[in-house]
Structures are given as C-alpha cells and as structure tokens.
Nucleic acid binder design. Structure first.
Length: 512
DNA sequence: CTAGGGTTAG
C-alpha cells in the first residue's frame, strides 16, 4: 500500500491521474488484492476526476467479494443514475453475487428485471449468476424456471441448481439432478457431498466421497471438509485418518476451515489429543477452530481445559460467538463449575457484547439445576427476558429428576404442555421422576397418557467405528447376544468410577 | 475484470 500511494502521488504530479488505464490498475489493486485496502480504494474512487465502467465494476466487485453486499448494491444504484456509465454483463455478475449473499430475493428480482431490460439474461455468466442467486435465496423454483428455459447450460448452472435443492431440503431431487448431469467436476462432486453432510446423511456423504475417487476425481478442499464432517458424526476414525493423511500427502493447505474440520473429526471420534495437536499446528485460528476445540474438550470431560481455552481466545484476540458460549457453558455445567459458568454467562453482554439467546438461558438453567440450585434455576426461568423453550424447561425438568423434586417437576411439565412443547422425552422424564419416588400409579398414568395422545419417545443413539465397521448404539436396546456380560461389566466400571478420587478443585481463575 | 463447492452447538 505504501508503494501504491507513492505511485499515486507520482501520477498526480505528472498529470496522469486522468489516465483511466493507470487509475484502473491502482483501484483494482487497492480494492481486490488481499494486501490492498478497500476503504482507501473507495476514497480514491470518490475523488477521481473521471471514471469508467470498468472502475465502477471493480468497486462493485470488491464490495461483493469482501462481504459488503449492501454497499455493492447501493453503488450499482448510483451507477444507474450516473451519466455515461451503463451496467454490463460484468456489473451484473458482481451485483448478483452480492445479492445471493444478501439472500434477499426482492432485491434480486429487481436486478433480474434490469437484466432482462438490458438484454443480458441469456449471457452465460449472468444466467448462472441468476440461478445461483435464486438458489441461494431459497427460491429454487425460480432458479429451476430459468434453468429449464435456457439453452446455454453448463456444469456451473447444474451445480448451482443442485445446491439450490440441497438448501431447500430436497436432497433427493438434488441427487437426481446430480445423477443426470451431463458433465461433473470436483466442485459438483463436493457440492453433493457437503449437501449430504449438511442434511445429516453422513453415510451417503462418505459413499459419494469414495465414489468420486473411483470416478477419477481428486477430492478438493470443500469435498474433504464435507467428508471429514461426516466422519465425525459417524465416528469413522479410520476414514478420517485416511483423509488427514491424504491432506498431508498432497500438501493441501491446512487453512482455518480444513483445520477446524480435522479438529472436529478427531474430537468426535474420541481422539482429543490428536485434535489438540492439529489445533496447535494451525498457523491461524479463528472462532470456529477455538469453538470446535472448546466443544471437544467439554465432550471429553475436560471442562477445566475447555474454560482455559475459552479465556485464551481473548488473549489471542479472537472474539467468541454465540456457539462458543453454548459450548463453554455446557462444559461448566457438566463439571459443576457453577461460579465459572455464572461469570461467563454474565460476561456475554458486558464484555463480549453478545445478548444471551434462549439457548444460553437453557445452559444457565442446566448449570444451576444440575448443581441442585433449583430455586435459582426456577427464578431464571421466570425472570428471563425471552420466552423459555423446550430446552430451558427440559433442563429444569432434568434437574428435578436429578434432585428428586417431584412438585417442581410436575409444574414444569404443566408449563411445557401449556406451551405445546411436550414431546416424548418430557413425559418419559416425568415418569422417571415418579418412579424414583416409587409412585408407580403416577408412572402408569403418564405412560397411559402417552399412549392415548400417541406421543412417542425417539430413543437416543450413538455411533462409533471399531475395526472399520460402524456400530450403532440405541438407548435401551438389549438385543445384543452378550447383553448379560455387557451389563455386569458396566456395573464393575460404574463402581470403579464412583470410587475414583476425582479432583474437584479445577483451579481456574476468571478475570473480574 | 466475471460463475458453482467449506468448518463450530445442546
């Protein structure tokens, strides 16, 4: 930037500042390059003695690429009212990109009408931009209309539409379209793989990842990230390790996104040490990497490290987001770190300027409730500024179960029913509360209610890979042939855990 | 001067 300013000074002195080619080069560098300075480019742009369509386009492009879609669009509007500069195919592909990011289809339709009026609709870049914009705004029907009417489709149009159906939750339609594609490349494969991962179809994601390679396509960055995410959810450690080795072998850049995906995969597969290793090796860590690691530690019962890492974020200048707080608060909750949790909750709005959402109140209620502070938990539910949801009340109910408070449990279930938040789990918890008090008649009544109202409890389940085979565990499932041996071994382990001298003093100092 | 695919949650 320093040299750029020198060049600029030179241009002014030599009178070449009116040279559109030279100023265009400077604006492009400042606005687009990673080492540039968009604000400075805009400042220059405002003070140019004359301009060009190219320069307008470059500014609009820069705002679109640097996640400032509103500025991009208002600059476009300004361009329309300017004298002598008309939007062209380039302008529209930038504006549509901004619009897709805005996910505001009303603005998008307005641009669409301009595009039709000026005759750019069937130009390939503009058409693909339109399909992408509609798909991203969750208007896959409009995207489809353009797609069906066009004679100018390519692999990019197809991929954009596949992605639209994924976003819309129509994964089967997306797959059907994917199968029909006349031509596929790594990007289209990745789109379908991550599509499966995003809707929770992890096996299908991994199958497609393997199929992609059998088809001779090399997995790229996004495809790898999607596959790793699937590995984490499936507990598919072997596959995940293989992908990690592939990344190393092919010198694929371990950037923030890929690093986070690896951390998440290892943590979910039980390898918290390897997750740490990846975390420490990352050259740059953003809020996603930190949150992923904090969550992994919490899930491994290492709450103290989880909170320490949360505090370290601030030292590294990384600002936590709403998800980070959910992870760190649940870490506190699990290890009974009430004071730490309370302080962190309180710091949300005061220090980090994030207003607690209903989920955060859920964590707080869980924290207090598990620790047996039922009165305070109830007070939070009563006084919180948001309407409590099923998680908040569920946390309270769970606390009632843990601490045997039948009356509060009943009240909580009542308020859940009033708000129509009672799913199967709620009734099961209530019946368990009665059971712990040996009130069998009440237990039977709840169970009968459930049958009458036809509420079903979805059993919890978990997956892990052992020797390359993915095993599934379902809560309450006793169908295994060695069930008796398993249960007696579990009893032994439970006894050993109870006798284990855990160190309750986690020794963390929180800043005031 | 242009387009499609990406990570964290209870």
């Amino acid at each position: 930037m320093k040299q750029i300013k020198q060049i600029q000074t030179h241009l002014i002195i030599s009178g070449s500042f009116t040279d559109l080619y030279a100023t265009g080069k400077i604006i492009t560098f400042c606005a687009i390059s990673q080492r540039g300075d968009l604000d400075y480019a805009f400042h220059l742009f405002r003070h140019l003695p004359n301009s060009s369509t190219f320069i307008w386009n470059t500014m609009i492009r820069a705002f679109a690429e640097k996640n400032q879609p509103i500025q991009a669009n208002s600059l476009y509007k300004e361009m329309l009212h300017s004298t002598g500069f008309f939007p062209n195919n380039y302008t529209f592909s930038f504006v549509l990109k901004a619009c897709a990011e805005l996910t505001n289809v009303f603005v998008g339709r307005e641009f669409h009408s301009h595009i039709v009026k000026l005759g750019w609709e069937s130009y390939d870049f503009v058409l693909n931009g339109l399909i992408h914009m509609y798909a991203n705004c969750d208007c896959v029907g409009s995207a489809r209309k353009l797609f069906d009417a066009s004679l100018n489709l390519d692999v990019i149009s197809w991929t954009a539409l596949v992605n639209g159906y994924v976003k819309n939750g129509q994964i089967e339609v997306a797959k059907h379209l994917f199968d029909q594609m006349p031509e596929r490349n790594s990007v289209s494969w990745s789109a379908m793989i991550t599509g499966y991962a995003q809707v929770g179809m992890f096996r299908e994601a991994l199958e497609l990842f393997n199929e992609m390679q059998l088809g001779g396509f090399r997995p790229n960055h996004a495809g790898i990230v999607g596959a790793l995410s699937a590995c984490g959810f499936l507990g598919a450690l072997d596959q995940g390790r293989w992908i990690h080795a592939y990344v190393d072998r092919n010198r694929i850049e371990l950037d923030r996104v890929l690093g986070t995906a690896l951390i998440d995969m290892y943590a979910k597969c039980g390898c918290i040490d390897t997750a740490w290793k990846v975390f420490n090796e990352m050259p740059e860590r953003d809020v996603f990497a930190f949150t992923s690691m904090i969550s992994g530690l919490a899930n491994h019962g290492q709450s103290a490290s989880s909170v320490q890492l949360f505090l370290k974020m601030r030292e590294e200048g990384v600002k936590p987001n709403e998800v980070t707080f959910i992870c760190v608060l649940s870490a506190c909750s699990r290890m009974g770190m009430v004071e730490e949790g309370r302080k962190i909750f309180e710091s949300m709005s005061r220090v980090y300027e994030i207003e607690p959402q209903v989920q955060h109140y859920g964590c707080l209620v869980d924290l207090l409730g598990r620790a047996g502070m039922l009165e305070e938990a109830t007070r939070i539910v009563r006084e919180m500024p948001l309407e409590p949801d099923s998680y908040v009340l569920g946390a309270l109910l769970n606390a009632c179960k843990m601490h045997g408070d039948v009356e509060l449990g009943k009240e909580t279930v009542e308020s859940l029913i009033q708000r129509s938040l009672d799913h199967g789990g709620v009734h099961v918890l209530l019946s368990n509360i009665y059971a712990s008090e040996r009130r069998w008649e009440d237990v039977a009544k709840v169970r009968k209610d459930m049958e009458d109202k036809n509420v079903k409890k979805v059993p919890g389940c978990s997956l892990i890979e052992v020797d390359g085979v993915v095993r599934e565990f379902v809560a309450g499932d006793r169908s295994h042939v060695f069930m008796e041996n398993i249960i007696s071994l579990l009893l032994v382990i439970t006894k050993q855990l109870k006798d284990f001298p855990f160190d309750d003093d986690v020794g963390i100092e929180l800043p005031q």
